Amino acid sequence: MNKFLFAVLAILIGGVGAAQTTIGPYNTGWLPVNSYSGATSNNLIFIPFHINSNQGSQMKRWSLTFRVANPIVNSEGKVFPAEKLSFKLASITGSQANEDGKLPSIANLQPLTNKIPYQFSNSFLVNNSPYSLQMKQYFNMNMQYDVAVEGGAYLDTYKSWQNYTVNLVIELWNSKMETMDSKTVSFQMQVYPSGVPPQPVQNSIIIDGAAKNVLLEFKTPADYANGVSKTLSRAVSVTSSTGYSVTVQSMYQNLTTSSNQQLPVNLIRMISRDHSTQAVTGNVVLSTASQSVANSNTAATEPRFFDLTYATQGGENSFFNRSYEQYSGTLIFSLIPQ
């Protein structure tokens, strides 16, 4: 009899312990998408934390995850692509300090603050936070999230007066990645953008007219001693519907003259800079190999311009004792969608 009672008591203790560390996510409204530019509903999802004397729960470090529970559908049977939705942390609030005397804040919790796309597998909102949630008494705090819908012509496919239902599972984990609480939260989304869908971005790379012919000229002893260079502003422009890479390569190993004199193309260095920020995006010695001179993980829906500088090294012996001729070569610039 005692053995039976002990087994029941152990199960009850486990249940009470788990209930002392809980989350209670809820929505504060809905998400209307009225424009092909997309939409954001600020502070749409609140995630309150409620903790009451949870010693031994291994919550000195913890994580918070979310996932889409099921396909995002409306009554017309249209299925909205989950990856077009995303979370972004708006704020963390709370007036109580934890056992370490620290108030809840972004700096103390160290959550992910970038845009986090929705998906059907778990994504971290907080990954192994150092902010201890192991408490001797009652504690609460709130995390608020904006929900955004990516803009684009694709929205026309999902245009409907019938709302889409978005169901999410949000889970709290302790330092051993044991589930402390798991809750479902839902919100409604209506997709009915007005106006004309935007035209898809055409991938293109354009060489400015002034940058199609580059002349590096040695005229004085100082040119031979110090090298020569030429910078071309807005030499290359790129538009891309996705992330991209810009590469450059020489068609031939040598620059040649009309009399068939040759100079190795690798005597010339090319430096590329973002025109707006002047940040260096590439610094290469020219060769017949394809080399990256600009990369981006995001699309360039408006033209992005790059400045190019061509330069030779000072005191390079290969340029001495040459007849006065023009050495020419051809460069190939390529845009590679990522």
Rank of each mutant, 00 (worst) to 15 (best):
residue 70 N to H: 15
residue 71 P to K: 11
residue 72 I to M: 05
residue 74 N to V: 07
residue 75 S to H: 10
residue 75 S to E: 15
residue 76 E to M: 01
residue 77 G to P: 00
residue 78 K to T: 11
residue 78 K to I: 12
residue 78 K to N: 10
residue 79 V to C: 08
residue 79 V to S: 14
residue 79 V to L: 08
residue 80 F to P: 01
residue 81 P to C: 02
residue 81 P to Q: 04
residue 82 A to W: 15
residue 82 A to S: 15
residue 82 A to I: 15
residue 83 E to T: 12
residue 83 E to C: 05
residue 84 K to D: 07
residue 85 L to Y: 13
residue 87 F to R: 14
residue 89 L to K: 11
residue 89 L to P: 15
residue 90 A to M: 09
residue 92 I to F: 04
residue 92 I to G: 07
residue 93 T to S: 14
residue 94 G to R: 02
residue 94 G to H: 06
residue 95 S to H: 05
residue 95 S to C: 01
residue 95 S to Q: 07
residue 95 S to G: 03
residue 96 Q to H: 01
residue 97 A to Y: 01
residue 98 N to C: 03
residue 99 E to L: 06
residue 101 G to K: 03
residue 103 L to K: 00
residue 104 P to K: 00
residue 104 P to C: 06
residue 106 I to W: 04
residue 106 I to Y: 03
residue 108 N to T: 08
residue 109 L to I: 15
residue 109 L to E: 10
residue 110 Q to R: 12
residue 110 Q to E: 08
residue 111 P to A: 09
residue 113 T to M: 09
residue 114 N to V: 04
residue 114 N to C: 07
residue 117 P to C: 11
residue 120 F to H: 13
residue 120 F to N: 14
residue 121 S to D: 13
residue 121 S to P: 10
residue 123 S to K: 07
residue 124 F to R: 01
residue 124 F to T: 01
residue 126 V to L: 08
residue 126 V to S: 08
residue 130 P to H: 08
residue 130 P to G: 08
residue 131 Y to T: 07
residue 132 S to H: 06
residue 133 L to T: 03
residue 133 L to S: 00
residue 135 M to N: 02
residue 135 M to Q: 09
residue 136 K to V: 00
residue 136 K to P: 00
residue 137 Q to P: 00
residue 138 Y to V: 04
residue 139 F to T: 00
residue 139 F to A: 03
residue 142 N to Y: 11
residue 143 M to G: 06
residue 143 M to N: 07
residue 144 Q to V: 07
residue 146 D to E: 13
residue 147 V to W: 14
residue 149 V to D: 08
residue 151 G to P: 11
residue 152 G to R: 12
residue 152 G to Y: 13
residue 153 A to E: 13
residue 153 A to I: 08
residue 157 T to H: 13
residue 157 T to V: 14
residue 157 T to C: 05
residue 157 T to D: 13
residue 159 K to P: 08
residue 159 K to I: 09
residue 160 S to G: 02
residue 160 S to E: 08
residue 160 S to H: 01
residue 162 Q to H: 09
residue 163 N to H: 04
residue 163 N to K: 05
residue 164 Y to M: 04
residue 164 Y to Q: 01
residue 167 N to Q: 12
residue 171 E to V: 11
residue 171 E to R: 14
residue 171 E to I: 08
residue 171 E to Y: 06
residue 172 L to M: 11
residue 173 W to P: 10
residue 173 W to F: 14
residue 174 N to S: 07
residue 175 S to H: 02
residue 176 K to Y: 11
residue 176 K to F: 09
residue 181 D to K: 00
residue 182 S to Q: 09
residue 183 K to L: 01
residue 185 V to D: 04
residue 185 V to R: 07
residue 185 V to T: 10
